[in-house]
Design a binder for these strands. Structure first.
Lengths: 165, 165
DNA sequence: GTTAGTGCAAACCTTTTGCAGCTCT
DNA sequence: AGAGCTGCAAAAGGTTTGCACTAAC
């Protein structure tokens, strides 16, 4: 959804498209990445140094409640911040590397099928589904194995020392 | 996994099974429900009034990092608290009613299939998958429709008043 | 006797709230 | 005028940290 479309959505709800909201929406759309409130705030201040952190939070809440952006946790990869993305794309899962923080998106039939099954089996009217996976990306998997090996080595040394004494 | 099994897991990592941890683990297992830190703390204090809130947090973190319990957000239904459940059961999704807060669990093939696809397509080693859906349960769906109707009615009245003036 | 774990107080970080002033319409 | 919106300061909510003391191994 373009900023235009979002503006229309806001208007329908009797809400206004202010200078601040325009800045925040543009940043959210440009950045393909997943921004958290603080990051978004810093970017926004580059365009308008007076823009307040509170406005960022209020805007994000508004957009979230209007269903215009989705809120993610990314498996709490570093801290409790929430990440936001505009709701333009197809439903997808987020896969986070717990070592390097890389985020990949996963599209696929199982997601849609799950939504349908939840609706049919549980009688829920599903408004949002959030699927997040945590693990190690192909790159970090190797490095991780090496790290574990070294940790085990360290433990062996420590144990040996203890036994000797 | 029984408390026994968890105790063994802790021991393997050179960790200790203290009175406090035993209490917390038992509570987590007994309660089929999804407890948050505060709730767990209150229950724990009934058994040991001196047990500190900080210990609850530290224990939960420990168990989470050891992969012995899973951490949920339940779509941030009321606040930012995290909910915990022991990792005994099969992989499942949590479906939260955004009106009454009821939580249902969903088991099914799509979940397992999704995990496999993420591993195959993205080359990730998946350690945890968390799927949460938000919506309205069959009961609240009806009530919700009624509420929306009343809200719309209210808006009509307000608009009429404004136009008249 | 070591090392891990606990309790207490205080800090921390993210997010929300109250309120006066501003700005669209 | 009247509603929505912003900025500022202050509070809230959930969680973590530093440190001295205690308990498990």
């Amino acid at each position: 959804m373009k900023t235009r479309g979002i503006e229309a959505s806001l208007r329908e709800q009797g809400l206004r498209m202010t200078r601040q909201r325009k800045i925040l929406l543009e940043l959210l759309e440009q950045s393909g990445a997943h921004l958290d409130a603080e990051h978004l705030y810093r970017l926004a201040r580059e365009r308008d140094p007076k823009l307040n952190r509170v406005t960022v939070y209020r805007t994000l809440k508004l957009l979230k409640d209007s269903g215009l952006v989705d809120e993610l946790d990314l498996m709490h990869w570093e801290g409790e911040a929430h990440y936001y993305e505009t709701r333009m794309k197809q439903e997808h899962a987020h896969v986070v590397c717990l070592r390097c923080g890389k985020v990949e998106e996963f599209y696929g039939e199982p997601l849609r099928r799950m939504r349908r099954q939840i609706e049919n089996h549980l009688g829920f009217q599903v408004l949002m589904v959030r699927t997040e996976a945590g693990g190690y990306c192909s790159h970090c998997r190797v490095l991780r194995a090496r790290e574990m090996e070294q940790a085990a080595e360290g433990a062996r040394v420590r144990n040996a020392r203890r036994t000797k004494r």
